[in-house]
């Protein structure tokens, strides 16, 4: 079974990437290949990287509160790049009130502060497992 490939990106303007780095490391320690793109990524850059790297999952870290603006744009860009089957998950400061709207936008995992890394690893494995090998060819 080849390693699961995950893109970890920080869209928007906040400059705090400690959370993203902790997650990247936890995913690596769970045997995944993590492509980390760094700070201040535009939705276009994220979708382009996801396409070129042929990742299984895209994870966003958003602490700026701009998730309701960024997430739909990123999902839209991914879909436009023929990446409809690539699940999107997000972590950061996400108010409970926004969660159902984000889920409706197609977000398949929302992880707030205090989430254990095991929970995130398990969710990614579940998403990739569900997607299956069939979609890859």
């Amino acid at each position: 079974m080849p390693a699961i490939r995950v893109l970890i990106a920080k869209p928007g303007l906040d400059g705090h990437d400690r959370g993203a780095k902790v997650i990247a490391r936890a995913l690596r320690d769970a045997g995944m290949e993590v492509i980390y793109t760094g700070l201040r990524q535009t939705p276009e850059m994220i979708a382009e990287a996801a396409l070129q790297e042929d990742v299984d999952v895209v994870g966003l870290s958003i602490l700026s509160g701009a998730h309701m603006a960024l997430v739909p744009r990123i999902r839209e860009m991914l879909d436009a790049n023929d990446l409809k089957d690539v699940p999107l998950i997000i972590g950061g400061i996400i108010p409970d009130d926004d969660k159902s709207a984000l889920t409706a936008m197609g977000v398949q995992g929302i992880f707030g502060p205090g989430t254990s890394t095991e929970t995130i690893v398990a969710r990614i494995q579940e998403l990739v497992g569900a997607k299956g090998e069939a979609s890859l060819l």
């Binding site: 490391r25 769970a30 276009e44 990287a49």
Partner: peptide
């Protein structure tokens, strides 16, 4: 990583000028 089989690949951080 020889321990987990995972990897963190950060080269794109330095290649943002090529985006788009």
């Amino acid at each position: 990583s020889p321990f987990s089989g995972g990897a963190i690949m950060g080269d794109r951080i330095r290649m943002r000028d090529l985006a788009g």
